[in-house]
Amino acid sequence: TEYKLVVVGAGGVGKSALTIQLIQNHFVDEYDPTIEDSYRKQVVIDGETCLLDILDTAGQEEYSAMRDQYMRTGEGFLCVFAINNTKSFEDIHQYREQIKRVKDSDDVPMVLVGNKCDLAARTVESRQAQDLARSYGIPYIETSAKTRQGVEDAFYTLVREIRQH
């Protein structure tokens, strides 16, 4: 089974770092803004072998026109913010609204991801993020692309959301 996953969120929150940590098991430290990259990885989730087709997208506003296209083809979405960047957390709402509009559905598989949880300088409390996820009816997972904490959990949870859909 193949799953088309799309990673969305503001610029600099760590979308590529999360994806590369999942696929290649290493942490990319330097920031190089993405336009669009796709990665494929075969994994076993709950005993089922599946192929993850992951689209890593641009957070930069100037590429926002490309969003409709990949939102149409994606089956599930990782909505990523950084726990030390309140603005990126506030941006999640717009991504969710755009996904709902493009998919013409209120019920699209999504996982809210709070990345950079290895950093002490948190400005978005776990509780705020949990409340937001609960209001959307989606899971919330904290990750660190640096330490790998929660990385597999985030992507695998999204696959489970798609399966249950």
Rank of each mutant, 00 (worst) to 15 (best):
P139E: 11
N85Y: 07
K100D: 00
V43N: 06
A58Q: 14
M71Q: 11
N25I: 05
Y95A: 09
V44L: 04
E75L: 05
E61W: 13
R160A: 12
T34H: 00
P33T: 08
D106S: 08
I141D: 03
L22E: 15
S38W: 00
Q60Y: 15
K100H: 04
G76Q: 02
Q42P: 08
Q94P: 11
D153L: 10
K87L: 05
Y70T: 02
I141F: 08
S135H: 12
I138K: 00
Y140G: 07
D118V: 07
T1A: 04
Q149F: 07
Q42G: 05
S135I: 13
G14L: 00
P109S: 05
S64H: 12
V6Y: 14
V124G: 14
S126Q: 12
E152G: 12
V8G: 01
R40E: 01
E142W: 09
A17S: 00
S16Q: 01
T73V: 03
A145S: 15
F27R: 01
Q98E: 02
E30M: 01
C50M: 04
T157Q: 14
T73Y: 01
D53A: 05
D118I: 00
H26V: 01
L112D: 11
G12N: 15
Q24C: 11
V151A: 14
D104H: 02
Y31R: 02
A65T: 10
S135V: 11
I23C: 08
N115G: 14
N25H: 01
Q69W: 08
S126E: 09
A65R: 08
G74R: 04
R72E: 01
G47S: 05
S88F: 05
E2F: 02
R127V: 07
V111D: 08
S135N: 12
Y70A: 03
N115C: 15
M66L: 06
L119Y: 11
F77Y: 10
M66W: 10
G150M: 02
M66Q: 11
Y140R: 09
K103I: 05
Q42W: 05
G59K: 13
V113A: 12
V6N: 10
D91S: 08
S16N: 12
A17M: 03
A129W: 09
A10N: 10
Q164A: 12
L158V: 13
G9Q: 03
R127T: 08
S38E: 06
G59S: 13
T157M: 13
D53F: 02
I162V: 09
R134I: 04
E90I: 09
D118T: 13
E62C: 06
R101D: 05
T147D: 14
D91V: 09
V6H: 11
K116C: 15
F77T: 01
D56V: 02
M66F: 12
V28I: 12
